[in-house]
Computed example of a mutant assay.
Amino acid sequence: MDVLNEIIRNSAIGPLSKGYQSFVLFLFSAIVVTLGTMLFVLLTYGRYVNVQFGY
């Protein structure tokens, strides 16, 4: 936990209030979880998707 606090303190969000820091960390975590879920779904069901390129 000390390492995480040190990284936050030395990053661009360090001087911001705790509320903004929490919001930025929540937004980053939500993006990472969404991308991980999308990767899992793509790897699991990707072979069943019919992809067509064209006009």
Rank of each mutant, 00 (worst) to 15 (best):
residue 2 D to E: 09
residue 2 D to F: 01
residue 3 V to C: 05
residue 3 V to N: 05
residue 5 N to Q: 14
residue 5 N to I: 10
residue 6 E to N: 11
residue 6 E to V: 09
residue 7 I to T: 09
residue 8 I to K: 02
residue 8 I to D: 03
residue 9 R to M: 10
residue 10 N to G: 06
residue 10 N to Q: 12
residue 11 S to H: 03
residue 12 A to Q: 13
residue 12 A to H: 11
residue 13 I to M: 03
residue 14 G to N: 06
residue 15 P to V: 02
residue 16 L to Q: 06
residue 17 S to G: 15
residue 17 S to F: 04
residue 18 K to L: 13
residue 18 K to N: 06
residue 18 K to Q: 12
residue 19 G to F: 01
residue 20 Y to F: 13
residue 21 Q to T: 12
residue 22 S to E: 10
residue 22 S to L: 03
residue 24 V to N: 01
residue 25 L to G: 15
residue 25 L to F: 01
residue 25 L to K: 13
residue 27 L to N: 04
residue 29 S to P: 01
residue 30 A to Y: 10
residue 32 V to H: 11
residue 33 V to P: 06
residue 34 T to F: 05
residue 34 T to M: 07
residue 35 L to C: 04
residue 36 G to P: 15
residue 37 T to D: 10
residue 37 T to A: 05
residue 37 T to I: 15
residue 38 M to D: 06
residue 38 M to V: 04
residue 39 L to K: 12
residue 39 L to Y: 11
residue 40 F to P: 00
residue 41 V to S: 03
residue 44 T to M: 14
residue 44 T to R: 03
residue 46 G to L: 08
residue 46 G to P: 05
residue 47 R to T: 04
residue 48 Y to P: 04
residue 49 V to W: 11
residue 49 V to L: 10
residue 49 V to P: 02
residue 50 N to K: 00
residue 51 V to A: 01
residue 51 V to G: 02
residue 51 V to I: 04
residue 52 Q to W: 06
residue 52 Q to V: 08
residue 52 Q to P: 08
residue 52 Q to L: 11
residue 53 F to Y: 06
residue 54 G to E: 08
residue 54 G to N: 13
residue 55 Y to M: 14
residue 55 Y to D: 13
